[in-house]
Structures are given as structure tokens and as C-alpha cells.
Amino acid sequence: MSGAPVELDDVDDAVRVRMVVNGRKVACDVAPRDTLVDVLRGPLELTGTHAGCEMGACGACLVQLDGCAVHACLMFAVQADGARIDTIEGLSASGVIADLQAEFHRRNALQCGFCTPGMLMTAHELLSQVARPGREAIRDALSGNFCRCTGYEAIVDSIAAVAEARAAKAAEGSSR
């Protein structure tokens, strides 16, 4: 056992957290009990990430933590100190999901829009792992994303269409 003294923070005292959010370094003071979703939505004003159930059951709060989709309601902001966080605002600005957004728009794969950022996070991760997922695989990937409005079909259609388009583009690129 190491005998080094352990420094413990006082309860609810603010802790300075530094993260790279959407490609920019940010620092903010949070209470240890503040969840990542509350800090993103509050002090960082990134309200595109939504809180739907605060227990990891709805997928509205998905963000990327060091490149992986996670529930921002299921971790505390202090835990993200030193991490890279990408939210819908960042993915949107960078253009990496522009084709998904355009296809969702064209097929109206959203109504109220509250689930949409989470849906896009899941879709983005799925398509980065599987080039041409079938409808069943798409539905499986979406199994933790609740949408009360659409009935899911247009979302599945949009993701499938983007997968096809990306595969076709890749094939075109490799044939040149």
C-alpha cells in the first residue's frame, strides 16, 4: 500500500474541469454531482444534447466521449476532465454528419426533434463501424434511442440510404 496522502475535495465545492469540447479547449467550474449533460446544457450552453430520462434509457443525451457514443446523463462532468467531448453542435459544424442530416431532412425522419441529436450520434457511430448495415442491424443499433413521434421507419430508411450512398461513393473512389 502506498502511504501517500489522498486529497479529498469538500462536498459540493466547485471543481475545475478542463475538456476539449467540439474541438475547443474549455474550462468550467462544476460541482462533483453535476452530470455531464447538465454541464453541457447549462454552463456550456450546448442545448442540442437533451435530457430525456436521466437514467440511460432514452438516448436523448448521447454525446461522443473520446470518440465513443455515451450517455451524458450517466457520467459526472468531473469524470470528463481531460476528455474530448463532441456534441451534436460539433458534429454538425464539422460536416461529418451532413449527409445523415440531409437524408433525415429529406425523408422527414424527425418530428419534434428531441430525440434527433441522439439518433444522429447512434447513426454516426454505427456507420463508422459497419459500412452497410441491414435494416435489422440498424434497428438493433437504435434499440436504446426512444422516439415517440416517428415510428422509426423513416429513421431506419435514412440511415440505410446514407450507408448505401457512402458505400457507393467509396466504391467510386476506389475504382478511380
Binding site: 442540442g48 451534436i88 453542435e89 433525415f104 431532412h105 419534434c112 426533434g113 428531441f114 434527433t116
Partner: peptide
């Protein structure tokens, strides 16, 4: 016709009461 107001929802720029401060 696609909904003109859906694009900002897709970009995470919806403005819901839950967002309001």
C-alpha cells in the same frame, strides 16, 4: 415538401422550454 423548420432541429438548434435560461 420537407419541413423548412426541421433543419435546425437536426443541427441541435431546437429551442425547447427545457433549454431556456
Amino acid at each position: 415538401v420537407p419541413r423548412p423548420n426541421a433543419k435546425r432541429l437536426l443541427a441541435g438548434r431546437g429551442r425547447y422550454v427545457t433549454d431556456l435560461r
